[in-house]
Nucleic acid binder design. Structure first.
Lengths: 358, 358
DNA sequence: CTGAAAGCGCTTACAG
DNA sequence: CTGAAAGCGCTTACAG
């Protein structure tokens, strides 16, 4: 056997990573002092603290989250549960969550879960209780699920839902702006003078789809030209659905002069349907999307759409969650989701009567 | 004070979640037996095992990962470190990782980290050692970084890099098919009879960009019509870059009859440049992309492209990582990344001499 | 301001 | 086949 080098036998024995006790021994103090220093707590003399800090830096010592967690009950982990609606939505949301986590020491654990999964509750329970997460953010339509509340309450884990309406108490909600955004879209079309207006909605089983439709209807009704139900086609938020819905709408004898699609993917599909039908956009058809994801500015002409603050909502979700954590019950003013914005690009034009109505 | 209900005082005291000891007490065994049952280990009588299992199911007991982790040194967490190149790439990769993790009990911790971050090493070290991750997968260009190896070796944490070439030993690599894919694109253009061929490359600081360019060059050279350097424009993988590069290429006196863009985003940009210039695609210009992300089939005409098995690569990365974990040193045959596929859609056409060269 | 000790919820040699 | 006990790496009353 090779001779041991003269390294202190009590240190670095296991896997090259030292423990709090190792640091304590090196500093000639009890591990409690090291713990206090690590956590920035008072109770250690200046000189001792400096010595300990130097040792920590020198050895690159990082306390183990799971040992801290076992002792304190914290996990230093926050979960993100979602069903995948759209890559860009997800990445943007995730980015917002990470914005909020930045500098907090919490890491983000990702857990896709479909509401239709036969073992929905079991899987969620196992995920959350196995890691004893400090909190969970639910985004996309899984956030609307009614099974969340009893389960998470039973598990006693704080959570926040990012959903289209206040599906939960304020401390557990980040409320979307789907309705307001759709109102903007409706007002825009009305202002352009459109009367015969079509809509491609999302799947009505989704709250987001219902809110967007309601907001849109509300704007048209307020302007005195209520939405014509025969001009509404339900899609599933995909490009293909938009394409088909667009074709159906444009095939009508008295086709609409403008179409609002409940997301950009479908709006791009409508645009393509128009182009295939030989219609010039926006002269012969105005198209408005929703979300302002990248596809909106990658199609030709670029889509007028409504920008939704998805990333900000993710950030908000974490702030809300951490507020609960720290027991800051007295949140000064409730945090509001930023407002949606109409982004007018190249698919908007004033209404012209379609030549030869019926 | 309210009277206690007659619940066993020793159970359910803390936060409604019981511990292994609680189950042991209820079953009248030592917690060791419960541990054996939980882990599916032998050493417990059938009758006892059944009794324990029933209790576990009844109370929905789930062992705490961090206590198990502290005792065994495992974290039940795998990290994914990446820099965000493109939402669809990321989500697809992440999906592949989750495919591999399914049923293993490991959770995925997400950690975006830019190579240019001033504290790159420090942040990575802290992330990995704080949670003592069981393994880390690096994807996107951060996987190419040369600082990974010394750091992770020091931390003694297994990892796998998903990169365009074998930047590491086989046990730590999932090797991309960028070069092979680009060869397919080149052969396709050659077969169509194109000679004056342009390329929009990715940023040459990325391995993926260099590989794609090399593969493309290789195919053209093999066909006897080497790539003309003056017809290569470097982009940064964005739509905008493709648009500009496309404009530059099409402005040339003797413009190319076909352009290969190193990803779909840029190809969509090239397509738009062609359309703006009044060129008919594919009759006057053939455009080929790379990746086969959704944008490829959402533009009009739909892009011919090369499908890269991103999700499969993510899956592979986890399999490779877990193989290392379980010390399965004798991997039968090395796992190979599935081959890329040429997907011919609507932007491919045979070459015709551009009218009026020069 | 500091130490010695118990405890967080598991696993695992060590004895029977 | 099963128990009692030590230990994983932290935190935190409890004494000085």
């Amino acid at each position: 056997m090779a001779h041991d080098r003269e390294a202190p036998a009590s240190v670095d024995r296991r896997q090259g990573s030292l423990t709090m006790r190792d640091i304590a021994r090196l500093a000639n103090v009890s591990s409690k002092s090291v713990s206090l220093v690590v956590n920035g707590l008072p109770g250690v003399g200046d000189e001792t603290r400096a010595r300990i800090e130097a040792l920590i830096a020198e050895h690159g010592y990082v306390p183990q989250a799971r040992a801290q967690g076992l002792a304190t009950g914290r996990a230093f982990l926050v979960g993100h549960v979602y069903n995948n609606p759209n890559p860009e939505y997800l990445i943007t949301m995730q980015q917002g969550l990470l914005d909020g986590l930045e500098g907090t020491g919490y890491a983000l654990v990702t857990f896709p879960l479909d509401r239709a999964h036969p073992q929905f509750t079991e899987r969620l329970r196992e995920f959350v209780s196995r890691h004893r997460l400090d909190g969970v953010v639910f985004s996309s339509s899984v956030a609307e699920d009614e099974r969340l509340d009893p389960l998470l309450a039973d598990l006693r884990v704080p959570y926040v839902r990012v959903a289209s309406t206040a599906v939960d108490v304020p401390e557990r909600s980040v409320v979307g702006v789907d309705r307001d955004g759709a109102v903007l879209a409706g007002e825009h079309l009305v202002e352009l003078g459109h009367v015969r207006i079509g809509m491609v909605s999302g799947p009505m089983s989704f709250l987001s789809a219902r809110e967007r439709r309601n907001g849109f209807e509300q704007a048209l009704t307020a302007a005195g030209s209520p939405l014509d139900d025969t001009l509404v086609v339900e899609g599933d938020y995909t490009f293909e659905a938009g394409l088909q819905a667009g074709q159906a709408l444009l095939d009508l004898d008295d086709r609409p002069t403008a179409v609002f699609a409940a997301n950009d993917e479908m709006a791009a599909g409508v645009l393509q349907a128009a182009q295939r039908a030989g219609l010039e956009v926006p002269r012969e058809l105005t198209v408005v999307g929703f979300d302002d994801f990248s596809i909106a500015s990658h199609v030709q002409p670029r889509l007028t759409t409504v920008r939704i603050p998805t990333r900000a909502m993710g950030h908000l979700a974490i702030l809300t969650l951490l507020e609960t954590q720290t027991g800051a019950t007295d949140r000064g003013q409730a945090r509001d989701t930023p407002s949606p914005e109409l982004v007018v690009r190249e698919t908007s034009a004033p209404a012209v009567s379609p030549e030869g109505p019926r």
